[in-house]
Design a protein around this nucleic acid. Sequence first.
DNA 1: AGGGCATGTTACAATTGCGTGACGAAAACA
DNA 2: TGTTTTCGTCACGCAATTGTAACATGCCCT
Lengths: 225, 225
Amino acid sequence: MSQQILIVEDEADIRELLRFNLEREGFTVHEAADGTQGLALARQYTPDLVILDVMLPGVDGFEVCRRLGAQSETSHIPVLMLTARGEEVDRVVGLSLGADDYVVKPFSVRELMLRVKAVLRRGGRTAESPVLERHGIRVRTEAHSAEVGGEMLNLTATEFRLLEDLLRHAGSVRTREQLLNNVWGYSFEGYARTVDTHVRRLRAKLGDAAPMLETVRGVGYRIKE
Amino acid sequence: MSQQILIVEDEADIRELLRFNLEREGFTVHEAADGTQGLALARQYTPDLVILDVMLPGVDGFEVCRRLGAQSETSHIPVLMLTARGEEVDRVVGLSLGADDYVVKPFSVRELMLRVKAVLRRGGRTAESPVLERHGIRVRTEAHSAEVGGEMLNLTATEFRLLEDLLRHAGSVRTREQLLNNVWGYSFEGYARTVDTHVRRLRAKLGDAAPMLETVRGVGYRIKE
DNA sequence: AGGGCATGTTACAATTGCGTGACGAAAACA
DNA sequence: TGTTTTCGTCACGCAATTGTAACATGCCCT
């Protein structure tokens, strides 16, 4: 039995794009054009993953996300959010409501496919709470919260995603380019040193744990192994 | 050897734009103005990536894409599709025929470059091992860290790349020419003995393992087999 | 043994890369 | 609407890195 994926997205061409690629990878695909229909299909098929656009007519993405979580207390359905740039708030709320990952539009098809597989691999139906921790820096992706040694950090959306990416690749150097792609998205047309500034702001908030975020001169940044 | 990219695009100014930017990034570029010519050049050069416009006179983009896939069953050539807005159908069909990503025209040059690199990184035919080791010298390319007998080395970016190259070709002699090309890049116009200086600096940091980095008089350097 | 090259060694100046603080614009919020 | 927060960019200064030159040493051949 192949794995089932539900797409909730109002733009037909994006639905098509996703369907073709997911089916090519061997998934069974269901489509919904709005939130209400999405919830209905989710109930009907209990898919292994829901790809969910934030901007939806009627019941919007994060409302769908919330109700998905409520409707099946026992079995958590992984959610991959699609969000346009500048929808930081939606994204944040979405993640705190149980989304497992998100991709910024316009996305690369390859990238999306990789994330789909990653989410399915790490969670599936028996998703453990994705908590990233290293050196007392703890990030709870679902709760969208970060703490250092028990002390809560007040991070902005960008800072959070930056920390999340670095922590997820702890021990490996992340180049500015990689960070720009993953944190800012492909369509970001900006200066690479923007990363530096955010690293600096992040360090300031990390307090004692700041030295764990190393600079690798001429390459990028990393969280110590 | 630099990576080769084939552009199949009928508009000359777009070809020029792409060529200029790709060559600046160190790629070797081939151009075709229509599908037939594109297929011919693909056969001739077996490029690492094809950038393919959907709208082409004669044999159109997705036909080219299909034939590309058919012609080389063994080695899949990554395809990046260029599609104008409103060509949604073409996009979908193209992707289902084996394209690896797409960019919507009018595209941002920066974004295109990022996607080119992303596609090449993933589908690269050079599946390089992430960990290189010889004689207790261990290099983790992803982490960008090097150690000798468990002891971390504090290498500069250039030293790291040098060690990586030597280690990757352990047992073979690397000429200064080769090292300059691989470590410094093709655009480096400098003195060959710059290599010597860096070898010395590297040796100093290698400590006990320094003798493993041999000089081959009149030829170059190598890591002992 | 000695000459001629190739490489090792050292020092230095120019360049590059990064941290830092400040600023204006845009977005979020009330 | 006005206020606050966040974001991206910039300019400056310091320090690490880098390429080169000049000199020293070692190797190979006759």
